[in-house]
Design a binder for these strands. Structure first.
Lengths: 366, 366
DNA sequence: GTCTGTGCTGGTAGCGCTGTCAACGATCCT
DNA sequence: AGGATCGTTGACAGCGCTACCAGCACAGAC
């Protein structure tokens, strides 16, 4: 269909402008701010672009305009289910927007994060999503000096760089322990892996709740820096039992560990919840399906990603949210594994300063 | 430390060149082809760049050189464990290379894939990784016309666009059924969700194996287009039982479904493997940890991602692999859920035209 | 002494787009 | 009527980098 081409075979804005009978700059404006054109020229440029199959050269645009339409996303892990839910939310929110996402994996290293941050900021991103609140001082300084909106996700804390969305892992852990107390449990163990800052804060919440009840003992806590897995859950639980055979409940820092504990109990023929109660964290999809069904602390990961991305776009477009720090809360979902009445899923304690509306979480996998 | 800055506050290549006492073009060469410089200038430029904290402007580089250092990656899902393992491999391989990854999610839609492909190709990526072999004709044409290396991942098929890495889902399913036959099972059900092309080929493998043994019946097959989940595994298995109470084994198209079947059997007090055997697909980490441990078909997902990325970089740098199509094979990992001897994990049948070396799979989550 | 080849370096000219500013006609106000 | 304002359009310059080609010094060949 008679395409006009340059030597490189690419259709440039100039070709579109020529076909539409306007100047290149007018054609350019069509893509950035169509309202500024008269209706006649707008339709002319539009059809010319479509006819030629014009696709803008992002590099040229970025160079000329001194800004990119790239959102940088820094997360500590690609495989952790928790982050894949968040990511899905982020990608869903950007769907159809003009921004593209540049994802990088810090591998739970704040030094790595600092390096990536330097790299990102040099490309003048339109916005940035970073995980957590534990940056290096250097990273923190770079973030504060950055001239783009920034959202910190996964947890909330006292000094937001800019915007922040998450929940209190400390409070969530305390709520889980409070639930176990309410079910009559006293010797509650803690099982944790990876021990990133957020898991550490869950541990802190556990410790404080136990201390408040004068029930804390160091030997009730089993943790490792090893990446989490179901198998590891079984192994850590085995350690815990060896140290303290008299436990009557286990609070697991995440659901994979909880599933591992469940299987280990099956192996040892320990009755759940009669002999030992189990509470997980995150409420992954399988928790409701296990036998017995497993109590967990539900966190709004998909919503967190989606809202973070939406807030960021709004802020980039100049509409800063009235509320820069958003607490998405959590909810203890009581199931058979911790129910003294051995009945099925019933909401229990919940937290978060927000209204804590529970959105339907999309199923864990697709 | 007396930094020289332009009005934008950025350090440009020109500043580096000036400090090093060379021309800008020489400084430029340092970053692309350091060997072309004399040792004296090389060290001068290097220290100047470091002193000024120079970070190249990628947009300018892309515009001037007419190529980007971006690798496009098209996958159908962000949350499916399978793809997160592949992604981790890809990201690991790019670690430290000068390429960056642009990830897009096709959501299992080949139309969406076509749209994204058009977008990607317009930016002249350095290379492309696409999932599977079922592109639209238009996509296929674009891929073939693209002037960059391309790797198709997840499965292997007859007409590679360029390079290809994966394994035969058809053969893998046949091997799983052969294993069940060997254990004495005859009435084997199939449970599948999502039914993307690869799951479809697993179903085809199941059907052909069953037909070969004259054991195929349509009512043994229960599938849905719904995204997979553990809960769904239980539900589909319930359907299967209702249709055909006499089954003695279930082949699940993935491990989540298998876990759901396991839990459903627990709920119904069906003994595994005595009454019904279970075989999953992918060998996710938890399969070895379940009670009973679950048989699965191991696939080398992490290695697939890593190798795909490595091959792509090699090809970009002009070193095309001697073997453009790589079959990574699979391996039926026999565990308690399908063992008539009720013993623990023992390798059984394996496939793939490659030497089928089993690399240690990194644990499923981190 | 000239010629050719090699290794290194620099000048020039863009890559495709957008920021800025100026110009134009049409409309509105005094 | 004159001036101000608005909406719309275009000319020009330049973003930071690299492709291309030319030039230089030096070594070896004739």
């Amino acid at each position: 269909m008679g395409r006009k081409r340059t030597k490189s075979g690419k259709i440039r804005l100039a070709e579109v402008a020529e076909l539409a009978g306007v100047s290149p700059i007018t054609a350019s404006r069509f893509f950035r701010n169509p309202e500024a054109l008269s209706v006649a020229k707008r339709t002319r440029v539009e059809s010319a672009a479509k006819e030629l199959g014009y696709v803008p050269n992002l590099a040229a645009r970025a160079l000329a305009s001194q800004r990119t339409e790239v959102i940088g996303v820094l997360i500590p892990s690609l495989t952790n289910n928790v982050f894949s839910d968040v990511l899905r939310g982020i990608y869903d929110a950007y769907e159809g927007s003009r921004y593209s996402i540049q994802l990088s994996n810090t591998r739970y290293s704040i030094l790595q994060e600092e390096r990536l941050l330097r790299l990102f900021l040099a490309q003048k991103p339109a916005g940035l999503i970073v995980t957590g609140i534990d940056q290096t001082t250097e990273s923190r300084a770079m973030l504060e000096a950055a001239d783009c909106p920034i959202v910190q996700i996964m947890e909330i804390g006292p000094n937001p760089v800019d915007m922040m969305i998450g929940f209190s892992h400390y409070d969530a852990a305390r709520a889980a322990i409070a639930h176990l107390f309410a079910q009559g449990h006293r010797r509650i163990g803690f099982v944790g892996a990876r021990m990133d800052p957020r898991v550490q804060r869950r541990l802190d919440g556990y410790v404080s709740a136990m201390k408040d009840a004068s029930l804390f003992e160091q030997r009730l806590v089993v943790t490792t820096a090893t990446p989490t897995s179901v198998t590891l859950g079984g192994a850590l639980f085995t350690d815990l039992l060896a140290r303290e055979p008299g436990i009557d409940a286990v609070f697991c820092a995440n659901d994979d560990l909880a599933l591992g504990v469940l299987f280990e109990c099956r192996r040892r023929e320990i009755a759940i919840p009669e002999q030992i109660a189990i509470v997980g964290f995150n409420d992954l999809e399988f928790m409701a399906s296990a036998v017995p069904t497993l109590t967990s602390v539900r966190t709004n990961r998909y919503e967190m990603g989606k809202t973070a991305a939406t807030m960021l776009i709004e802020a980039i477009d100049g509409r800063r949210p009235e509320q820069p720090v958003l607490d998405l809360g959590f909810k203890v979902i009581e199931r058979q594994s911790s129910s003294s009445r051995h009945q099925d899923s019933r909401p229990a304690a919940s937290g978060g300063s927000a209204q804590n509306k529970m959105v339907a979480l999309p199923s864990g996998h697709d």
